[in-house]
Amino acid sequence: MTPDMAPLGGAPTESRRPSTIYDVATAAGVSHQTVSRLLKGYEGIRPETRAKVVQALEELDYRPNLTARSLKSGRSHRIAAFTHEASEVGPSRIAEGASAAARDAGYVLDLVFVDMHSPAAIEQSLELLTRHAFAGVLALASSDAMLRALAEVDFGVPVQLETEAATHSSFSETATTALVEHLASLGHRRLLHMAGPMTWSSARGRQHAYETATAHLGLESAGALHGDWSAGSGYRAVAELTELPDATAYVVANDQMALGVMLALKERGLRVPDDVSVVGVDDIPEAAYFDPPLTTVRNDFDATGRAAVQRLIARIEGAAPPPAPRRATEVIVRRSSAPAPAPDPAGRVR
């Protein structure tokens, strides 16, 4: 049924025109200039006035006319977000947070997902971005291939590059270190790392943090296995081993691989956590429902995406960048981690 059609048996209904800032101003009992200043992010508005305007915006379902704004200012209000691995939890949820933040600021976010395994697809996507009038480009670059592709393009607009380097202030460092410390507190002394693809900076950061933390705490490492972030790769990495390593705990670089690791261990006759503990990173919604529920560290993907867009918009509008969000590192302890098992009479852990 179109907006001008009536319900069955009723009279025709009128199409409701979009609300304007003048409608909002009338409803809130303020001037249209006050509404305009609030929409532009001006902070010097009295709290009681701000509350009335916000209420009027919600009641009237006000939506800014981006086309009119662009024509009047001569500036686009579209942002391109260039990312890849849409099937992975992290990139997709970061993109969701970025889209929400752009919408809140009166911008439209155009998501461009790229197959990094196809050079032709990369070239086509980059060409698409350069042919359109964007106010800025958000590059959610997780892999080395993405970084190389972006380095060869001049978009002619502000670009916000978001990548996680292996630094002491990164989430990879703090999350992995916290997990190793958690396992050490349970008496584990020999660990194994299930790493992500080394073409990703976050995977390198987590492996580096694992190696640093085990050495600092005087723990032994049984080495590292490698996957591609998927549950299947975690499963295969363990299932295809000729002999399981002599480790009492697996520090897995993300929750999805941890799911595969736990199934492979179970099929090889080991009980989690009685015989071996498994921990992951990210705290995806399903982690609490693994068998057993997974001990992990929460990764606030939504906040990451929002902060990235806010930094880009600040550059577009020539404003001071917002402060970086404070990310608390909290180990979510569930049943997949437990005290280390006692060694058998031969001195082995199992």
Rank of each mutant, 00 (worst) to 15 (best):
T248Q: 15
M257A: 10
D4K: 05
G10P: 15
Y107R: 02
L263I: 06
V276Y: 01
S118F: 03
A139C: 12
A102M: 09
A328Q: 08
G9M: 11
S230L: 01
M146A: 06
H226L: 14
R103A: 10
A151H: 08
R46K: 09
V297T: 05
T167I: 11
S76P: 05
D300G: 06
G223P: 07
A253M: 12
R298Y: 07
R189W: 01
R148I: 04
S221M: 03
M262D: 02
A51W: 09
I316Q: 11
S185F: 15
T167L: 04
E330P: 04
G44K: 11
R236T: 04
M5S: 09
I332F: 10
T83N: 07
L191E: 01
E211K: 01
E330H: 11
H193Q: 10
A105D: 14
S125G: 14
E267V: 10
A307T: 00
P323K: 02
A98K: 05
A237S: 12
A264V: 02
D246K: 15
R326V: 15
L263T: 07
T34S: 12
E181V: 07
R334Q: 07
I313C: 10
L39D: 04
F155R: 08
Y42G: 10
L259K: 12
V238G: 10
T83W: 08
L71D: 05
E164C: 10
A195D: 15
K52C: 01
V278W: 00
E14Q: 04
G90L: 05
G41T: 00
Y289F: 11
L192V: 08
V112L: 10
Y250E: 12
P3T: 05
L259D: 07
Y210V: 01
S92I: 14
T212N: 12
D291C: 11
R326G: 04
A303K: 04
S92A: 13
L57P: 06
G90K: 14
T329D: 13
V180F: 00
A222I: 01
V24P: 01
T20F: 05
A264L: 03
D300H: 09
F82H: 06
E127W: 03
A308P: 06
E211L: 03
A141S: 15
G136W: 00
V114S: 07
V297W: 00
L186A: 03
L270V: 06
Q310I: 01
V153C: 06
L138A: 11
A101M: 03
E243Q: 13
R326I: 08
V54T: 13
T199L: 14
D228L: 12
L57D: 02
A346T: 13
A195N: 08
R78W: 02
H84A: 13
I122P: 00
A178K: 12
P7Y: 15
A81T: 09
